[in-house]
């Protein structure tokens, strides 16, 4: 494990990939690797890109990455797609849109399913970001479909969060519903060559006036590569602002707090479900609740007492 971590630090792509897999599967042996990885992480600028289905996130990320490459910066991308709650499987197709990056040795792209597993999705993404960071990537972009709370949580990993919309009222409303308005550091109105782009920009601005939170709005047409330069300028300005105001540190503290709690929660859940003594007693408690002998709250007290003993 230590050797794998050392290789990852040197940028060995197979080692990086394997470590991310261990993070995804919730392996406990990862701890040993993260002891080495963590002290070397923290240098990269982590950018979250989110928005509802079909707004062109992957294409936009591809264009951003190409620009960063022109500037000589190395790029890591973590693309998260939903896992089917029914089968546990997932179709991960974001890479297709990133084909122009496929043969660039300084770009590492990893697709992840949300998996809905015990450790929480964000846990694995945190680890993946740290691994890429420690391996020397200057920029790390995390892509999620902003539809559920879990995905919104993931985006909290980012130093800078970009929320992508397309012209049209439907997407606007969905974006509000998904709670993406609150987390945006920068808005992108993509596919801005479509009719209605101006009114989407205006609506965003009036929304922000009401909430008294003003963030930049950038218009892009990712398939043409338009507006991407401007977006990167805003991203860089935001990062600079974070550093100047001390907000960067606050955000990272929040990131590690969330991660810490998640790891603990994940381990607790695992204990409850996986360890023999708990599985049995939980099973017994559930039977009693079902039979009406016990209420769920009192049962929970019993489980907690057992855990803390």
């Amino acid at each position: 494990m230590r050797e794998l971590a050392e290789r990852a630090l040197r940028g060995d792509r197979r080692a990086i990939a394997r470590l991310i897999s261990l993070a995804e599967s919730g392996s406990e042996s990862l701890k040993e690797a993260m002891e080495i990885i963590h002290p070397r992480a923290g240098r990269a600028h982590v950018i979250g890109v989110t928005g509802v289905m079909g707004v062109g996130k992957s294409t936009l990320i591809c264009e951003m990455a190409l620009k960063y490459r022109e500037m000589g910066k190395s790029v890591g991308i973590v693309a998260v797609d939903p896992t089917s709650p029914f089968t546990g499987g997932a179709l991960l197709g974001d890479r297709v849109r990133m084909n122009p990056l496929a043969s660039d040795g300084e770009v590492f792209i990893r697709s992840m399913g949300t998996r809905g597993k015990l450790g929480g999705l964000s846990g694995a993404v945190y680890d993946a970001v740290e691994i890429l960071d420690a391996s020397g990537k200057d920029i790390i972009i995390v892509e999620t479909v902003g539809v559920g709370q879990a995905e919104v949580d993931v985006i909290r990993i980012a130093d800078t969060t970009v929320v992508v919309l397309v012209p049209g009222l439907g997407d606007f409303i969905q974006t509000i519903k998904a709670g993406l308005m609150e987390i945006a550091d920068i808005f992108v109105v993509n596919k801005s060559d479509r009719p209605g782009a101006d009114s989407t920009v205006n609506e965003l601005k009036s929304m922000m006036e009401i909430s008294e939170k003003m963030v930049p709005v950038v218009c892009t047409s990712a398939t043409e590569g338009e507006g991407v330069d401007e977006l990167l300028v805003e991203v860089e300005n935001h990062f600079q602002m974070l550093k100047d105001t001390g907000e960067l540190e606050r955000r990272r503290r929040r990131r590690y707090e969330t991660e810490l709690v998640e790891i603990v929660m994940g381990r607790l859940k695992k204990m409850i479900y996986d360890e023999g003594r708990f599985r049995e007693s939980v099973g017994e408690l559930v039977r009693r609740i079902t039979d009406g002998e016990l209420d769920p709250h009192s049962a929970a007290e019993e489980v907690l007492a057992g855990l803390l003993r």
Binding site: R18, L92, I109
Partner: peptide
């Protein structure tokens, strides 16, 4: 299973690199 789809027109080099990154 988790299925990563590459899209069309892949060279063997691209396929191998993707397989490695995606483990």
């Amino acid at each position: 299973m988790e299925v990563i789809y590459t899209g069309l027109h892949q060279t063997p080099e691209m396929i191998v690199e993707t397989a490695i990154q995606e483990d």
